[in-house]
C-alpha cells in the first residue's frame, strides 16, 4: 500500500509517496530526496548528527517516522543559507573553529539554531553546553562549538534589536 504525505522542506512544498511505512525522516531526506546534509551517526537518537527543525523545533530525524510528520514544515542544513549568504550560526562555526572532521556539524548547527530560537540559554556558556548535550562530537570540538553558539546568539539578538529599532 502506498502512503502519501505533504511536507514543506526548506520552504518548498513536496508531495511524497512512500511504498513503505518504515521510512524515517532521516532516510526520506537522505535516500529519497538526496538532501544528505543531515547525517546518520547512530540512527538511535543518541548522537544528534541527524538533527533537523520540524515546525521550528529541533528533533532527531532518525527516530521520527516520516508518515507521522505529514503536514509539517522541515528545515535542514541545506535550507539555512539565504541567497548564498551563510546563516549567522554557520558563519560562527567557521569563525570559531567549531568543527574538525565536520561529520557532526550539520546536526550541531541545526541544534544551535533550535537552541537560539528556544531562548532559554541567554549568554551563559553552561546553559549552552547543557542545551547542546544531545549533539556528540567525536573530534571533541566542544570549546569552539560553545563559542560559536554564544557568538551567533549574540549576533542574532542584536540583529533583532536593530530590526525592531
Amino acid at each position: 500500500m502506498n502512503l502519501s504525505l505533504t511536507l514543506t522542506i526548506n520552504g518548498e512544498q513536496r508531495e511524497i509517496v512512500l511504498d513503505d511505512p518504515r521510512v524515517t525522516l532521516l532516510d526520506l531526506l537522505r535516500e529519497r530526496l538526496h538532501l544528505t546534509g543531515a547525517k546518520k551517526g547512530c540512527d538511535r537518537g543518541q548522537c544528534g548528527a541527524c538533527t533537523i527543525l520540524v515546525d521550528g523545533q529541533r528533533i532527531n530525524s532518525c527516530l521520527a517516522l516520516a508518515i507521522s510528520y505529514d503536514g509539517s514544515a522541515i528545515t535542514t542544513i541545506e535550507g539555512l543559507a539565504e541567497n548564498g549568504a551563510l546563516h549567522p550560526v554557520q558563519q560562527a562555526f567557521i569563525d570559531h573553529d567549531g568543527f574538525q572532521c565536520g561529520f557532526c556539524t550539520p546536526g550541531q548547527i541545526m541544534s544551535a539554531v533550535g537552541l537560539i530560537a528556544e531562548a532559554q540559554a541567554d549568554g551563559d556558556a553552561e546553559r549552552i553546553r547543557e542545551a547542546m548535550s544531545g549533539n556528540i562530537c567525536r573530534c571533541g570540538a566542544y570549546q569552539g562549538i560553545t563559542e560559536a553558539v554564544l557568538d551567533a546568539q549574540a549576533k542574532i539578538s542584536t540583529g533583532k534589536e536593530r530590526d525592531a529599532a
Partner: peptide, 9 residues
C-alpha cells in the same frame, strides 16, 4: 532527561 531534541519530540 534525554536531550533537547528528544524532549522536543
Amino acid at each position: 532527561g534525554a536531550s533537547a531534541q528528544l524532549r522536543n519530540a
